[in-house]
Structures are given as structure tokens and as C-alpha cells.
Write a protein that binds this DNA or RNA. Sequence first.
DNA 1: CTCTATTTTTAGAGAGATAAAAATTCGGGA
DNA 2: TCCCGAATTTTTATCTCTCTAAAAATAGAG
Lengths: 241, 241
Amino acid sequence: MTGETTAEDVRRLPTRAVDCLKYIYKLRERGERVTTSTMRERLQAQEPGGQLSDASVTQLFKSLAEQGYVDHTPYRGVELTPKGVATAAELVRHHRLLELYLVRHLGYSWDEVDAEAERLEHAISENFEDRLDALLGHPTEDPHGDPIPSKTGEVVATHTQRLSALQPGDEAIVRRVSDDNSDMLRYLASLQLVPGARVTLLERAPFGGPLRLRIENADVFSEHAVGSELADAVQVVVAAR
Amino acid sequence: MTGETTAEDVRRLPTRAVDCLKYIYKLRERGERVTTSTMRERLQAQEPGGQLSDASVTQLFKSLAEQGYVDHTPYRGVELTPKGVATAAELVRHHRLLELYLVRHLGYSWDEVDAEAERLEHAISENFEDRLDALLGHPTEDPHGDPIPSKTGEVVATHTQRLSALQPGDEAIVRRVSDDNSDMLRYLASLQLVPGARVTLLERAPFGGPLRLRIENADVFSEHAVGSELADAVQVVVAAR
DNA sequence: CTCTATTTTTAGAGAGATAAAAATTCGGGA
DNA sequence: TCCCGAATTTTTATCTCTCTAAAAATAGAG
């Protein structure tokens, strides 16, 4: 028995390699295909001002494939193996536990936590992770509504759709918002368009135009027009149609 | 004006380089000379199973000297420049704030915190540091009695001496204990030989033999014999002689 | 002055990066 | 269906950085 190595992998592999697994995991959450250039953009965005070529990403893919974390079909992209899923889930678990902790116990606002968690997720120990988990009451969602994988990598799946997919007259509950754009998060908070809020689509302009919404959160009502970029970043569950 | 770069240095420099500055800082705290081989041992102990040669340390010294963090006198050793002191103090500040935080808010025991802080100290942001500092009430000492440098690198100096330097009959207050040996810390805790405790040296055996001590902490009294290694690791302030 | 332990220099190996060249995919037109 | 060309991905050759082993240099004790 070689024992559980997933947790160690997160700290043993180069930061870039684990981040790569994490992004594959997150892109797959949204059902997108993972290509070399997509990954280069992602990894590059991570390190401000950092340079990274497509060729380097190809080599990273090959190296991760050799180590059994991904299946790499040349010219087609990569998919996580079970081992890769486990490792990525462990890192994502760190990230989301940290985000929730930073908001609840250190007074961070939800638009600040992504960047801080990005750094810390690689450094914390198994012990730290477990203490956070217990202190937070074994949570299953982070402040943005993203599911927190369990220690064994399972997630509570919720069937959601994009806010942009609603039809006029539909009522829905916000479940999840994209967490990686600070400015958007601040704006969403100002609209009260947060997980748990109830939205009604009043009207939608054609050709990707704005959506007019009625928003209710904590008994406060408002009405706003939002653009398609924002409506794509918000996941909802339809309550009435 | 190029602005304050110290905080960024901690995250921009390679981990090993910042750790090197930290160890120079800590060795100087105890007035020890910093040689190539000492540093190699220190850095090697850091990474379990890690290999590191003396030659690498020499190159690290040269590189840090070129960047203005240390003065390197070949064959003699290194000393921190003001820039080096500032950078090391910033990292030590991270470390000690984290140690105190882990004990106070996450239920860690004082023998666990060094290893965890070691990892986190490189990852936290300026923002995180400031929040910790405020939450802890701007502390000046960590759980082991080590001073926490201010944001500008100043420390509250206390004139201490080793417990092993006491004479029979001396009474002293424990101020500080060495933080890097888990087993010793657990043992010290079991003896109540912690910062704030009052000790009286009853007797000392010759030739580096054991010291017989009377220990008082929180109105609990006890008597123990301790060896010289332990007596060297505890710093005290004499109260009565 | 000489001997020994330590430190530094030197030479070269390995990881990880890039630019440029080669290979492959994919959509559209004959 | 086949072929072409643009876009993308992979390969190749090379560069830089960091490390080590071995050789050379130096310090310090006797």
C-alpha cells in the first residue's frame, strides 16, 4: 500500500503544474475543451507580467501525461485522469475553503479573496485544511456559490444554467457567480446579484443586448439592466417559468 | 522615489534566497557568525530529504551580495546590509504573526506552528499581514517569546541570558524559548517552562551536568532537573540574585 | 611554515524556458 | 471527395539558471 499521495502532490509538483491541473478542472466544470492556447492565456494571466509560450504549455502537458495526471491527445487537448481529478480537486478544495475562511473570519470582501487564496492554496498543510474545514462547519460552497470538493474529491452537483439563458417572465435563484473578476464581483455585490438572490427576467433585448432584471435579496427589491458578459457569469436555478 | 520594495522582495526572490536572509537574521539575533557550512545545514534541514552543497550556498551568498542584500567577505562569511535586514525582518514578521495567529485563532499548539508558518510566510500578502496584525492587537511577541518586528523592521529588544548562565539561588523569568524543535517544545510545555514562568535555580551539577530548577507558572509549582541542551534553549531575565 | 578544514572557483549536467521550423487540424471551394 | 490555406500545436535547437563534483584557494592552528 503506497498510501494517499494526492495531498502531497499538491505541494510536491511545481506550482505551475498544479495550477494547470486546476484550470483543466475548472474549464471542465463548465464543459469547455482545454486547448494549449487557452491554457497559456490562463497561466499567463495568473502571474502578472509573466511570459509563457505555447511551446512551454505543450511540454507541460506532455510532462503531466507522463506522470499520469492527464491524457494528452496531440493536437486535440488534454483531459484529466482520475489521478489528475483527485489532485486538482484537492487544490480547488484548498482554494474554496480559504475563500470562505477569509470572508468569514478575516473580514475580506468577496472580490478580494480569489487572489489571496491563489497564493495560499499551495502552501497550506493537510492539518491546516482540516482545521479550516472543521471551523467552517464542513461547508459545501464557497462565497461565490462554487462547490467545495470533499476530501475524497466529490462535489455536490447542482444543475444550473446561465442567467443569460432565462426567458422573459422566468423567476430564478442565483446559485453561483464567476469568481475571477474583482471588478465584476464588486459590481454584482452592488446590484445584490449574489447567491441566494431571487431574480425575475423582465425583458431581454435581442442580439446579445441587455437583460432587464428584477432582483430581490434579503427583502430588498431593485431593477437593473445587465449586459451579456455579466449575464453569462451568473448561474441560476429556475424557480418558476 | 522608487518606493517601498521590501514587502515585494519577500515574494519576488526565490524562496531559498529569502530563507537564507532569514537565517542570517536569526543567527545574528543570537550573535553567531554565519558561515557557508552553517547555512547549508540550515537550508538543508528546511527541506526534508533535500540535497544542497556548500558550493550552492557560496553562489547564493554571491548572488545576494550582488543584489545588495548582504556584504560577503570571501572565506569569512556574510552580514546583512540594511536592505537585507529589512527584507529578513519582513519575513520574520510574517512568520511570527502567523505563529501567534495559528495558536490564538486556529487552535494550534506551540510546537506545531513553526512548520506551518514556514510555509505560509512566503505566500501571504501585505493585506493579509495587516489584517492579522490588527486582529491580534499589534503584538510584539510570538508564542515562544520571540519579538515580532514592526512593519519598519524595528524590534523591541529585551536583554536576556541563557537559563544555563544562571547561578544557584538566582530567580528569573522565562522570556523566550527556541522555536524550531517540536519535541523540545512539547517537553518544555509539560514542564511549564514557558514565557512568563518564574524559575529558581536550586543547584547545578558541574561539567555541563543537569540543572535542578523550581518552576512556578500560573500558581503551579514544580521541581525538575533539566539538561544543558534545554537550558541553552531557554532565555531568561534575572529577577533576583 | 606546514597541515588540515573550510570555502570558493571551475566545468559541466539538468530543468525549464523560448523562437523558429515542422506538423496537424479544420473550414471552405472546386 | 479532395485540396488548399490559415490557425493552431508540436518539435527542434538553443539559452539561461541553478545545481553539483572536483579542483583550487584560503584561513587558522600548531
